[in-house]
């Protein structure tokens, strides 16, 4: 089974109906909202990481241009 199929399976109504009795009901909308927030957070994380790496590289390049290395 490929990943995409598995991923779809997790969020399908069939799987959601397997919630234990008494567990708070989770709607598909709530899950997709959670998923959206997580994705947004991960994108922000990537921008911060890449931005930090790039700024350190640029600082070093600036030093390289002004020093006799």
């Amino acid at each position: 089974m490929n990943e995409q199929t598995l991923s779809k399976q997790t969020f399908s109504r069939q799987t959601l109906n397997k919630q234990p009795v008494g567990a708070p009901a989770i709607s598909e909308q709530a899950i997709s909202e959670q998923d959206r927030r997580r994705r947004r957070g991960l994108i922000a994380f990537q921008i911060v990481c890449y931005g930090y790496l790039l700024s350190m590289f640029l600082i070093q390049m600036y030093m390289y241009s002004t020093r006799d290395w």
């Binding site: 990943e3 994705r39 991960l42 030093m63 390289y64 290395w69």
Partner: peptide, 27 residues
């Protein structure tokens, strides 16, 4: 600078697997 970064970028980047690891279906 450039030599070091070219060589090391491959070591630095594996943590960028994090978005995948956080969003993959754990099942």
């Amino acid at each position: 600078v450039i030599g070091w970064w070219l060589y090391d970028i491959f070591y630095i980047t594996p943590f960028l697997a994090l978005p995948y690891l956080h969003s993959v279906n754990r099942e």
